[in-house]
Amino acid sequence: MALSVAVLVLSGCTDGGVSNPVDVIAAKDPLSISTSVESGDSDVPVDTLVTVDGFDGDLSEVSLVSQDGKATVPGEIHGVRWTAQQLLEPATSYVLTAAGTGDDGKKVSSVTRFTTKALTLDEQTYPAVAPLQDETVGVGMPVIVSFDVPVRDRAAFEKRMKVTAEPATVGGWYWLSNHTAHWRPRQYWKPGTKVSVDLALNSVHAGEGVYGQQDQHVDFTVGRSVVHVVDTKRHRLTVKINGKNRRVIPVSTGDAKHRSRNGVKVVMEKHRSIDMDAATTGVDSDDPGYYNLKGVKWAMRVTNSGEFLHAAPWSAASQGNANVSHGCVGMSTKDAAWVFAQTKRGDVVNYIGSPRRLEPGNGWTDWNRSWDEWLEGSALAAGADAA
């Protein structure tokens, strides 16, 4: 604050002698308002965090709204500065209004108009989330965020990707690629856990001129614990519910040429009926092992490559004593219907006894990595957090 000093010298006689008091008089200045964007700017980056500063007085009111009035950017005043709490939308005209009172007691207002840069769809990446809103999932379900345009600055995004849970749960992010990130707890979810996913990614720079297309918020619940154990050597499926064995079911798994993969898998999809074409798994129609089955009942997918648990009435004679499938777990229609009814997306299916290993990324294979390996997949140094 600028000060103007006036010196007034007074002379007078007193019994104690001569005194010369000095009065300092401060001149009071008007409020000065400064904004981080210039009025008339027409190409403002969408990741601009707008600020307004007030000097020689107090800011009392700031608003940032789109010119059409459909969008409002919230913000807060701390001391002499107002800071927006959100970034900006592309190709949008904004009106920034600020008002306050100067040290001189007079009110001052300011209006700044600007427009943000337009972005093509190739310059924006959309975050799709699984589970879905209000879905009840199994204890092995990861939080999956998929981006349609690659994210190069993973750290910038991960800082704004939050998972919170009740009860609190330790977990962390792992980037499978620039298109996909998973969050999983250190151990299987506790049944009944309430989970919230918050992605504050709208207009965040993803690197190489790409920006987040929107924020996302998803709430989901973890249901009871259902863990299936497929023993490929003993040809049986054991269903454990809340830690207790509920049923042992005779099955047939992959034959010698098409071994079922060993490892911890997670139920990705459920279909009451589905057509199964071997061509989708890379088997040519001229191959002797080619098949095209219509209306397969009670099917639950566990790999991208086409492994399911499903009803297989055609292999009834082999169930419980031989492996004759192309990798799927086949069982009777009655047993498959029962398993289907117990199972949710995100339930665990643990395969044991097979010499063939499950490939990383062939489905939701998160549980086949140790916790230390998982933390190495984070874009941030800390890795784990308490959700």
Score class of each variant (00 low, 15 high):
V348R: 12
S378R: 08
A317Y: 13
T169H: 01
L375P: 00
V229F: 00
A278G: 15
A317P: 09
K270I: 09
G263C: 02
Q86Y: 00
V108W: 04
E376Y: 04
D215N: 06
D385H: 09
A26G: 06
S260A: 09
G282R: 07
K162F: 08
G57M: 05
G75V: 06
R261N: 14
T303M: 03
S332E: 06
A379N: 01
Y351C: 09
S285L: 10
H228L: 15
E373W: 12
D23R: 10
V195N: 03
G263S: 02
Y188W: 12
K70N: 13
D122Q: 11
S110D: 02
V230Q: 09
S225I: 06
Q319V: 05
L59F: 04
P45D: 09
V5G: 11
G209L: 13
T14D: 01
P191T: 12
I249D: 01
D287P: 02
I352W: 08
V264I: 15
L96G: 03
P30S: 11
A341C: 00
E307Q: 14
S19E: 12
V227F: 05
Q85D: 13
A387Y: 14
T238S: 15
T253Q: 11
E269N: 09
R261M: 15
V197E: 06
K257N: 07
R247F: 00
G212C: 08
G363H: 09
T51Q: 14
A384T: 09
M268K: 11
T101R: 12
R184F: 02
T365R: 03
T125G: 05
D153V: 04
I77N: 10
D255W: 08
L87T: 02
W374Y: 12
S260W: 10
R154H: 08
M331W: 13
N202K: 14
L201F: 14
E89G: 05
T125Y: 00
A165Y: 09
S285A: 15
G383R: 02
R154K: 15
K28P: 04
T253D: 12
R113E: 15
I144M: 04
G69L: 06
F55H: 11
I144P: 01
V248Q: 14
E269K: 13
F340L: 06
M268G: 04
A2I: 09
V226N: 08
A299I: 11
T333L: 03
N20L: 14
D385C: 03
V204N: 01
S252W: 14
Y94V: 03
D385L: 00
V170D: 14
L121I: 04
S354M: 00
S36Y: 04
S11V: 08
T35M: 05
P360C: 10
T303V: 03
V302L: 10
R160E: 06
D43E: 13
R259H: 12
A322T: 13
V339N: 10
G40Y: 04
Y290P: 11
E76H: 07
S19K: 12
M300L: 05
T253L: 10
